[in-house]
Design a protein around this nucleic acid. Structure first.
Length: 322
DNA sequence: CATCAGGGCCCTG
DNA sequence: CAGGGCCCTGAT
Protein backbone atom coordinates (compact mmCIF):
# COMPACT_ATOMS: atom_id res chain seq x y z
CA UNK A 1 0.00 0.00 0.00
CA UNK A 2 1.66 3.19 -1.20
CA UNK A 3 1.06 6.30 0.88
CA UNK A 4 1.73 9.89 0.04
CA UNK A 5 2.39 12.82 2.29
CA UNK A 6 -0.93 14.37 3.19
CA UNK A 7 -0.13 16.49 6.21
CA UNK A 8 2.53 18.01 8.42
CA UNK A 9 2.03 18.51 12.14
CA UNK A 10 4.24 20.66 14.31
CA UNK A 11 4.46 19.92 18.02
CA UNK A 12 6.25 21.89 20.70
CA UNK A 13 7.01 19.55 23.63
CA UNK A 14 7.62 20.88 27.10
CA UNK A 15 11.23 21.73 27.78
CA UNK A 16 13.68 20.13 28.26
CA UNK A 17 13.14 17.48 25.62
CA UNK A 18 15.36 14.68 24.37
CA UNK A 19 14.09 13.53 20.99
CA UNK A 20 16.12 10.37 20.47
CA UNK A 21 15.72 8.97 23.97
CA UNK A 22 11.98 9.56 23.72
CA UNK A 23 11.38 8.14 20.25
CA UNK A 24 13.83 5.31 20.45
CA UNK A 25 13.96 2.81 23.30
CA UNK A 26 16.85 0.41 22.67
CA UNK A 27 15.18 -2.27 24.80
CA UNK A 28 12.09 -2.37 22.59
CA UNK A 29 13.08 -4.79 19.92
CA UNK A 30 11.93 -3.70 16.53
CA UNK A 31 9.82 -5.93 14.39
CA UNK A 32 9.27 -4.15 11.14
CA UNK A 33 6.83 -1.45 12.25
CA UNK A 34 9.43 1.26 12.81
CA UNK A 35 12.90 2.52 11.97
CA UNK A 36 15.00 4.91 13.99
CA UNK A 37 18.04 6.94 13.15
CA UNK A 38 19.37 9.92 15.03
CA UNK A 39 16.80 12.69 14.79
CA UNK A 40 14.22 10.68 12.82
CA UNK A 41 11.72 7.99 13.65
CA UNK A 42 9.52 6.31 11.06
CA UNK A 43 6.54 4.58 12.59
CA UNK A 44 3.31 3.04 11.37
CA UNK A 45 0.08 3.78 13.20
CA UNK A 46 -3.45 2.59 12.81
CA UNK A 47 -5.47 5.55 13.98
CA UNK A 48 -9.22 5.89 13.63
CA UNK A 49 -9.48 3.26 10.90
CA UNK A 50 -6.70 4.74 8.78
CA UNK A 51 -3.28 3.12 8.32
CA UNK A 52 -0.68 5.86 8.63
CA UNK A 53 2.99 6.29 8.02
CA UNK A 54 4.44 8.79 10.45
CA UNK A 55 7.83 10.42 10.20
CA UNK A 56 8.85 12.17 13.41
CA UNK A 57 11.64 14.63 12.84
CA UNK A 58 13.62 16.47 15.45
CA UNK A 59 13.46 20.10 14.34
CA UNK A 60 14.34 21.62 17.70
CA UNK A 61 16.84 21.20 20.51
CA UNK A 62 16.84 20.09 24.14
CA UNK A 63 15.93 23.54 25.40
CA UNK A 64 13.93 24.72 22.38
CA UNK A 65 12.07 21.56 21.55
CA UNK A 66 10.16 21.01 18.35
CA UNK A 67 8.96 17.88 16.60
CA UNK A 68 7.73 17.92 13.02
CA UNK A 69 5.52 15.02 12.07
CA UNK A 70 5.04 14.20 8.42
CA UNK A 71 1.86 12.23 7.95
CA UNK A 72 1.56 9.77 5.08
CA UNK A 73 -1.79 8.28 4.20
CA UNK A 74 -3.92 7.05 1.32
CA UNK A 75 -6.97 9.22 1.94
CA UNK A 76 -6.83 12.93 2.47
CA UNK A 77 -7.28 13.67 6.16
CA UNK A 78 -9.83 16.02 7.63
CA UNK A 79 -8.87 18.82 9.95
CA UNK A 80 -10.54 17.14 12.91
CA UNK A 81 -8.74 13.89 12.16
CA UNK A 82 -5.37 15.63 12.14
CA UNK A 83 -6.23 17.41 15.33
CA UNK A 84 -7.08 14.18 17.11
CA UNK A 85 -3.92 12.58 15.74
CA UNK A 86 -1.80 15.39 17.12
CA UNK A 87 -3.38 15.04 20.56
CA UNK A 88 -2.80 11.31 20.47
CA UNK A 89 0.87 11.71 19.56
CA UNK A 90 1.30 14.13 22.43
CA UNK A 91 -0.41 11.68 24.76
CA UNK A 92 1.45 8.53 23.73
CA UNK A 93 4.89 10.09 23.88
CA UNK A 94 4.17 12.25 26.94
CA UNK A 95 5.21 15.38 25.09
CA UNK A 96 3.43 17.61 27.61
CA UNK A 97 5.01 15.97 30.63
CA UNK A 98 6.57 18.32 33.14
CA UNK A 99 9.74 16.61 34.30
CA UNK A 100 11.02 19.46 36.45
CA UNK A 101 9.59 18.29 39.80
CA UNK A 102 11.07 14.84 39.21
CA UNK A 103 14.49 16.29 38.37
CA UNK A 104 14.38 18.61 41.32
CA UNK A 105 13.53 15.89 43.79
CA UNK A 106 16.49 13.75 42.74
CA UNK A 107 19.04 16.43 41.91
CA UNK A 108 21.27 15.15 44.71
CA UNK A 109 20.55 11.46 44.40
CA UNK A 110 23.85 9.73 43.70
CA UNK A 111 22.41 7.01 41.48
CA UNK A 112 19.89 9.09 39.62
CA UNK A 113 21.37 12.53 39.11
CA UNK A 114 24.13 11.52 36.64
CA UNK A 115 21.59 9.54 34.61
CA UNK A 116 19.13 12.41 34.61
CA UNK A 117 21.91 14.74 33.52
CA UNK A 118 22.75 12.46 30.62
CA UNK A 119 19.17 11.89 29.47
CA UNK A 120 17.62 15.19 30.36
CA UNK A 121 14.27 15.53 28.63
CA UNK A 122 13.71 11.83 27.96
CA UNK A 123 10.05 10.82 28.17
CA UNK A 124 8.62 7.40 28.77
CA UNK A 125 6.13 6.45 26.10
CA UNK A 126 5.04 3.84 23.63
CA UNK A 127 3.62 4.03 20.11
CA UNK A 128 0.97 1.35 20.63
CA UNK A 129 -2.71 1.56 21.42
CA UNK A 130 -4.12 -0.53 24.27
CA UNK A 131 -5.28 -3.24 21.86
CA UNK A 132 -1.89 -3.40 20.19
CA UNK A 133 -0.07 -3.45 23.49
CA UNK A 134 -2.24 -6.27 24.79
CA UNK A 135 -1.28 -8.37 21.77
CA UNK A 136 2.37 -7.49 22.26
CA UNK A 137 2.11 -8.19 26.00
CA UNK A 138 0.77 -11.67 25.32
CA UNK A 139 3.55 -12.59 22.92
CA UNK A 140 6.07 -11.43 25.49
CA UNK A 141 4.76 -13.95 27.98
CA UNK A 142 6.97 -16.87 28.82
CA UNK A 143 9.19 -16.36 25.82
CA UNK A 144 12.65 -15.09 25.07
CA UNK A 145 13.04 -11.88 23.09
CA UNK A 146 13.93 -13.68 19.91
CA UNK A 147 10.83 -15.78 20.01
CA UNK A 148 8.59 -12.81 20.84
CA UNK A 149 9.95 -10.90 17.86
CA UNK A 150 9.36 -13.92 15.67
CA UNK A 151 5.74 -14.22 16.81
CA UNK A 152 5.11 -10.52 16.33
CA UNK A 153 6.51 -10.54 12.83
CA UNK A 154 4.40 -13.53 11.88
CA UNK A 155 1.27 -11.77 13.12
CA UNK A 156 2.10 -8.51 11.37
CA UNK A 157 2.91 -10.19 8.09
CA UNK A 158 -0.30 -12.20 8.13
CA UNK A 159 -2.85 -9.72 9.45
CA UNK A 160 -1.16 -6.35 9.16
CA UNK A 161 -0.54 -4.28 6.09
CA UNK A 162 2.71 -3.38 4.44
CA UNK A 163 2.93 0.37 4.03
CA UNK A 164 5.23 2.07 1.60
CA UNK A 165 6.00 5.67 2.52
CA UNK A 166 8.95 8.01 2.40
CA UNK A 167 10.97 5.27 0.66
CA UNK A 168 10.44 2.92 3.61
CA UNK A 169 8.49 -0.31 3.82
CA UNK A 170 6.99 -0.93 7.22
CA UNK A 171 4.26 -3.18 8.59
CA UNK A 172 1.19 -1.63 10.14
CA UNK A 173 -0.97 -3.19 12.84
CA UNK A 174 -4.41 -4.42 11.87
CA UNK A 175 -7.62 -2.92 13.16
CA UNK A 176 -8.70 -3.97 16.65
CA UNK A 177 -11.19 -6.79 16.40
CA UNK A 178 -9.69 -7.62 13.01
CA UNK A 179 -8.97 -11.23 13.87
CA UNK A 180 -12.66 -12.01 14.12
CA UNK A 181 -12.64 -14.34 11.13
CA UNK A 182 -9.34 -15.95 12.03
CA UNK A 183 -9.50 -19.26 13.87
CA UNK A 184 -7.45 -20.18 16.88
CA UNK A 185 -5.94 -23.00 14.83
CA UNK A 186 -4.77 -20.59 12.16
CA UNK A 187 -3.10 -18.46 14.82
CA UNK A 188 -1.43 -21.53 16.22
CA UNK A 189 0.11 -22.22 12.86
CA UNK A 190 2.01 -18.98 13.27
CA UNK A 191 3.70 -20.72 16.20
CA UNK A 192 2.32 -18.53 18.93
CA UNK A 193 1.47 -21.71 20.85
CA UNK A 194 -1.06 -21.55 23.68
CA UNK A 195 -1.14 -17.76 23.30
CA UNK A 196 -3.43 -18.24 20.31
CA UNK A 197 -6.36 -18.63 22.68
CA UNK A 198 -5.43 -15.47 24.58
CA UNK A 199 -5.01 -13.43 21.40
CA UNK A 200 -8.38 -14.63 20.11
CA UNK A 201 -10.15 -13.67 23.31
CA UNK A 202 -8.50 -10.28 23.53
CA UNK A 203 -9.43 -9.53 19.95
CA UNK A 204 -13.00 -10.59 20.70
CA UNK A 205 -13.37 -8.07 23.53
CA UNK A 206 -12.57 -5.31 21.07
CA UNK A 207 -14.69 -6.77 18.28
CA UNK A 208 -17.63 -6.77 20.67
CA UNK A 209 -16.83 -3.27 21.85
CA UNK A 210 -16.29 -4.34 25.45
CA UNK A 211 -13.22 -2.19 25.97
CA UNK A 212 -12.77 1.44 25.16
CA UNK A 213 -9.25 2.74 25.63
CA UNK A 214 -10.09 6.41 25.70
CA UNK A 215 -12.72 6.07 28.41
CA UNK A 216 -10.47 3.74 30.39
CA UNK A 217 -7.88 6.52 30.43
CA UNK A 218 -10.22 8.64 32.52
CA UNK A 219 -10.57 5.98 35.24
CA UNK A 220 -8.42 5.63 38.35
CA UNK A 221 -5.38 3.41 38.53
CA UNK A 222 -7.26 0.82 40.58
CA UNK A 223 -10.15 0.71 38.13
CA UNK A 224 -7.81 0.33 35.18
CA UNK A 225 -5.88 -2.38 36.95
CA UNK A 226 -8.99 -4.33 37.82
CA UNK A 227 -10.40 -4.04 34.31
CA UNK A 228 -7.17 -5.25 32.75
CA UNK A 229 -6.78 -8.16 35.16
CA UNK A 230 -10.24 -9.33 34.19
CA UNK A 231 -9.13 -9.85 30.61
CA UNK A 232 -8.41 -13.45 29.71
CA UNK A 233 -4.70 -14.03 29.31
CA UNK A 234 -3.73 -10.87 31.13
CA UNK A 235 -2.06 -11.22 34.52
CA UNK A 236 0.07 -9.10 36.83
CA UNK A 237 3.10 -8.97 34.53
CA UNK A 238 1.19 -7.71 31.50
CA UNK A 239 -0.84 -5.26 33.59
CA UNK A 240 2.31 -3.85 35.07
CA UNK A 241 3.70 -3.04 31.62
CA UNK A 242 0.43 -1.53 30.43
CA UNK A 243 -0.14 0.70 33.43
CA UNK A 244 3.22 2.27 32.74
CA UNK A 245 3.49 2.27 28.96
CA UNK A 246 -0.15 2.81 27.97
CA UNK A 247 -1.71 4.56 30.95
CA UNK A 248 1.39 6.44 32.09
CA UNK A 249 1.38 5.75 35.82
CA UNK A 250 4.72 6.46 37.42
CA UNK A 251 3.71 5.44 40.91
CA UNK A 252 3.01 1.77 40.37
CA UNK A 253 5.67 -0.86 40.75
CA UNK A 254 4.52 -4.23 42.00
CA UNK A 255 6.08 -6.68 39.60
CA UNK A 256 9.53 -7.79 38.51
CA UNK A 257 9.91 -10.61 36.00
CA UNK A 258 12.76 -13.12 36.36
CA UNK A 259 15.08 -11.67 33.73
CA UNK A 260 14.49 -8.12 34.99
CA UNK A 261 15.16 -9.34 38.52
CA UNK A 262 18.60 -10.52 37.44
CA UNK A 263 19.38 -7.26 35.68
CA UNK A 264 18.18 -5.10 38.58
CA UNK A 265 20.20 -7.26 40.98
CA UNK A 266 23.31 -6.51 38.98
CA UNK A 267 22.84 -2.79 38.44
CA UNK A 268 21.33 -1.81 41.81
CA UNK A 269 22.99 -4.34 44.11
CA UNK A 270 26.02 -5.37 42.07
CA UNK A 271 24.96 -8.97 42.52
CA UNK A 272 25.96 -11.72 40.10
CA UNK A 273 23.05 -12.64 37.87
CA UNK A 274 23.10 -16.26 39.04
CA UNK A 275 22.50 -15.07 42.59
CA UNK A 276 19.77 -12.43 42.29
CA UNK A 277 18.27 -10.34 45.07
CA UNK A 278 14.70 -11.33 46.07
CA UNK A 279 11.97 -9.42 44.24
CA UNK A 280 10.50 -8.13 47.52
CA UNK A 281 13.81 -6.50 48.36
CA UNK A 282 14.10 -4.92 44.92
CA UNK A 283 10.61 -3.45 45.21
CA UNK A 284 11.42 -2.14 48.67
CA UNK A 285 14.55 -0.49 47.30
CA UNK A 286 12.52 1.31 44.62
CA UNK A 287 10.37 2.89 47.31
CA UNK A 288 13.09 5.49 47.75
CA UNK A 289 12.00 6.96 44.44
CA UNK A 290 8.54 7.68 45.86
CA UNK A 291 5.83 8.60 43.42
CA UNK A 292 8.37 8.69 40.60
CA UNK A 293 9.60 5.13 40.98
CA UNK A 294 8.64 4.00 37.50
CA UNK A 295 10.19 7.07 35.97
CA UNK A 296 13.36 6.68 38.00
CA UNK A 297 13.80 3.04 37.09
CA UNK A 298 12.97 3.83 33.46
CA UNK A 299 15.83 6.33 33.34
CA UNK A 300 18.32 3.87 34.78
CA UNK A 301 17.02 1.02 32.67
CA UNK A 302 17.15 2.95 29.40
CA UNK A 303 20.59 4.24 30.27
CA UNK A 304 21.80 0.66 30.47
CA UNK A 305 20.36 -0.19 27.07
CA UNK A 306 21.87 2.87 25.46
CA UNK A 307 25.21 1.85 26.94
CA UNK A 308 24.80 -1.53 25.34
CA UNK A 309 24.62 0.14 21.94
CA UNK A 310 28.08 1.55 22.43
CA UNK A 311 29.88 -1.16 24.31
CA UNK A 312 29.71 -4.88 24.85
CA UNK A 313 28.25 -5.81 28.25
CA UNK A 314 28.85 -9.56 28.57
CA UNK A 315 26.65 -10.23 31.62
CA UNK A 316 23.73 -8.43 29.94
CA UNK A 317 24.11 -10.31 26.67
CA UNK A 318 23.84 -13.52 28.65
CA UNK A 319 20.50 -12.49 30.14
CA UNK A 320 18.64 -11.21 27.10
CA UNK A 321 19.12 -14.16 24.80
CA UNK A 322 18.49 -12.66 21.45
C1' DC B 1 18.93 -37.99 21.14
C1' DA B 2 16.31 -36.10 25.56
C1' DT B 3 15.51 -32.51 28.84
C1' DC B 4 14.67 -27.93 30.32
C1' DA B 5 13.64 -23.15 31.09
C1' DG B 6 12.15 -19.07 29.24
C1' DG B 7 9.80 -11.07 29.13
C1' DG B 8 3.16 -15.88 32.52
C1' DC B 9 -1.39 -17.26 32.96
C1' DC B 10 -5.22 -20.41 33.67
C1' DC B 11 -7.23 -23.98 36.06
C1' DT B 12 -7.64 -27.47 39.48
C1' DG B 13 -7.60 -29.42 44.03
C1' DC C 1 -2.70 -20.67 47.64
C1' DA C 2 0.42 -24.12 45.41
C1' DG C 3 1.54 -26.39 41.49
C1' DG C 4 0.85 -28.64 36.98
C1' DG C 5 0.22 -27.79 32.08
C1' DC C 6 0.86 -25.21 28.11
C1' DC C 7 3.51 -23.87 22.72
C1' DC C 8 7.87 -23.41 20.73
C1' DT C 9 12.89 -22.74 20.57
C1' DG C 10 17.62 -23.03 21.43
C1' DA C 11 20.99 -24.33 25.04
C1' DT C 12 23.05 -28.11 27.40
Amino acid sequence: MRLSKTDVITITPTSPFNFDATFHKPDHFTSGDNIWQQGIRWQTWFWRDVPLGLKFINTGSINKPQVTVEVFSEPQLSESYTKSLKQEIIYRYNLNLDLKPFYKQFAKDKTLSPVIEKWKGMRPGHPSSLYEYLIIGIILQNATIKRSVQMFQALLENYGRLLNFDSKELWCFWKEGGLHNISELELRQLKVGYRAKYIKKIDDYFYEGKIDELSLRTRTLDEQRERLLNLYGVGPATVWYILFDVFHHWDFFNHVSPWEQKIYSKIFFNRETNNPVPVSRILKYFERFGKYKQLAVHYIWENLWWERKNKHIPWLEKEIRL
